[in-house]
Design a protein around this nucleic acid. Structure first.
Lengths: 123, 123
DNA sequence: CTGGATCCTGTCGGATACTG
DNA sequence: CAGTATCCGACAGGATCCAG
C-alpha cells in the first residue's frame, strides 16, 4: 500500500514500455512471435522500411532484456537466427492485450472523429 | 486470419502505445486513476519535474483520445479539473498488467545482471 | 550475410517569459 | 490559475559507407 506514484515512480511501467516502445520493436516482436526463428535478412525482408542499423539496435536491446535469443552459426556466409526466448514468450499476452485494446481504440476514435480522419491534430 | 504483421501493420499496437508512451503519460494516468479528479496545479505538484508545457500537451493528447475528461470552471481564478473518462477507465487493466510485467521484468534483469546495475548499455 | 562506424536531421522535450 | 509562445539542446532514428 501507499504505492502512490510519487516522485520518480512508475518505473515498472516504464520498464515495460522500454521493451516495446521504439519505432520497430512491436513489429519485430510480432514477427518473431509468429515465426519461431528468423534470420537477420528475413527480418529485413519482412520489414522492408527498416534500416540495418535500426534492426540491429532494436534486436540488441531485445536481446539484452532477454526477450529474444540470438543464435550465431559460425560459418562462412554468416548466419544469425533470432527467436523469442522462453522468458520472452511471457510478454505475448501483454502484447496481445495491447493490440486488442488498440484495435478497439481505433474503432472508438472513428466513432468520435469519423472514418476519414487519421490524426487531425495538425496545427 | 492471415493477419500477419506485414508492411504497415501493427497499427493497433501502435495505437495503444501512442496513448501511454511519452515521458509523462504513464505517471499522469496513474495519478488520475487514483485520484478521481485533479486540477492542473495539483498534477503539477504531484509531478514536480514536469513543465507546464509538457503537462498541457500530454493532457491534451489524452483528452483528444477520450481517455480523460477536462472540465473547465468559468470563474475568475481559472479552474480546470481532469479526470479519467468512462472510456478511459477501460485502459486501467492494461496499465496494471504492464506495470505488473514491468515489475517482474526489473526483477528478472536483476537476476541477469545483478542488483547494482542500471543499464550498463553505455558504449 | 550480418553487422559496425559515421554523419546528419527531425522531433521530443526542457527553460523561460508572457497572457487572460 | 491555467495555460501559450519561443527558443534550443539532446537524442532517436535515417543514410551511407566500411568490414569480417
Amino acid at each position: 500500500m501507499a504505492n502512490q506514484p510519487r516522485g520518480e515512480t512508475c518505473k515498472e511501467l516504464q520498464a515495460a514500455l522500454d521493451i516495446i516502445s521504439g519505432k520497430w520493436k512491436p513489429i519485430i516482436l510480432f514477427h518473431l512471435m509468429e515465426n519461431e526463428t528468423l534470420r537477420f535478412s528475413e527480418l529485413q525482408r519482412a520489414i522492408p522500411e527498416i534500416t540495418k542499423k535500426m534492426l540491429t539496435s532494436q534486436l540488441r536491446e531485445l536481446e539484452y532484456n532477454n526477450i529474444i535469443d540470438r543464435k550465431v552459426y559460425q560459418q562462412v556466409p554468416p548466419k544469425v537466427e533470432y527467436s523469442m526466448s522462453d522468458y520472452g514468450h511471457g510478454l505475448k499476452p501483454l502484447l496481445v492485450s495491447m493490440r486488442s485494446w488498440g484495435f478497439n481504440h481505433l474503432e472508438h476514435l472513428k466513432g468520435l472523429y469519423g472514418e476519414d480522419n487519421e490524426k487531425m491534430m495538425e496545427n
